[in-house]
């Protein structure tokens, strides 16, 4: 995951696949809550846990930011699926029409010798 993050920092505009997006927030949230709710008798251990906890909160915050920037690099999600399918259909129609036009040009009657 860290490698992915470094990679994304290097090129912020290249398209990314969905598998590369890191959205595993729940484990960190769980760890933060668990460490907050844990009771410590030893003060030094409590202070260390508190430091770890704030570290994890920062990590979570960073994870959210990275996930946002990764999502912005995902291809093909500028429209919802219906609109995307419509666009796809439009492109297919365009291609069909262009093919027909080319065919028409190619099969064009070479010369009409009807004039007298």
């Amino acid at each position: 995951m860290e490698n992915n993050t470094d990679h994304s920092d290097q090129n912020n505009f290249s398209p990314l696949s969905v598998q590369e997006v890191d959205v595993d927030f729940l484990p960190i949230v769980y760890e933060i809550i668990r460490s907050v709710e844990r009771d410590f008798h030893d003060n030094s251990a409590k202070a260390r846990e508190s430091q770890d906890c704030s570290q994890k909160v920062l990590e979570l915050q960073k994870k959210f930011d990275v996930a946002r920037s990764q999502i912005k690099r995902l291809p093909g999600i500028d429209y919802n699926k219906q609109d995307q399918l419509k666009q796809f259909e439009i492109l297919r129609t365009q291609l069909r029409l262009k093919r027909e036009l080319l065919q028409k040009y190619r099969n064009m009657c070479s010369f009409e010798t009807s004039f007298k």
């Binding site: 969905v18 093909g76 291609l95």
Partner: peptide, 19 residues
């Protein structure tokens, strides 16, 4: 869903190139 759309996008790119 985004993954599906990425696949559709890839097809669209191919279509665009052909167009």
């Amino acid at each position: 869903l985004a993954e599906e759309q990425a696949k559709i996008q890839q097809k669209m790119n191919e279509l665009k190139a052909e167009v």
